[in-house]
Amino acid sequence: MIVGSRKPMEEIEAMIDPFERIIVLGCRECVTVCSVGGEKEVGILAAELRLSRKQKGRAIDILEFSLERQCDHEYIEQIRTQVANYDAILSMACGAGVQFVAESYPEMPVFPAVNTTFIGVTEEQGLWTERCQACGNCILHLTGGICPVSRCSKSLMNGPCGGSSDGKCEVNKEIVCGWQLIIERLKQLGQLDKYEEYIPIKDWSSSRAGGPRKVVREDLRI
């Protein structure tokens, strides 16, 4: 899922400062699962904004609303009739959701309440960690199911580097060396021969280096 963290209140308040009628728009997908932008978080942020404005003696009218997703037109359409009654939208979705809402309502200022952080997993309740950087060319079959792009601080294709010591990364002793994990896993699988294979220089054109990406499925297009 896409994992995010909420922006500091100060930053959010500065964004919406000129407005008195706003929609706080949640998303029921990834940001709900990582407890940052779902229905409940919309309620909390709206309550905070109202309390903050009230103590400054300023009015704010907030519509709390959550969409099934903010990355699909049909759901974004659900607020079309409401949009005209408000001055701005504060989206609690990931960056994709915020942009898609902004594209759908070009006349409305749309602000992000969340910093989109990474594609990751719920390691345990309240702990999310990164697993994928969407490089566009998966090599997990070569690396024991552990991704060197996202788990190695340098995204090395043939690691570990000299900065790995006692299984930890030199960037931060709390970071486990991704390549140490790969070697251990390959050993466990009896596939250490794969580690011997040289992985050629990665073609990053499928990643961000190739510019904004798109996927087209002609069979699905209407």
Partner: peptide, 8 residues
């Protein structure tokens, strides 16, 4: 923490 953040 939230209440402190908004100066409440």
């Amino acid at each position: 923490k939230l209440l402190d953040e908004i100066g409440f």
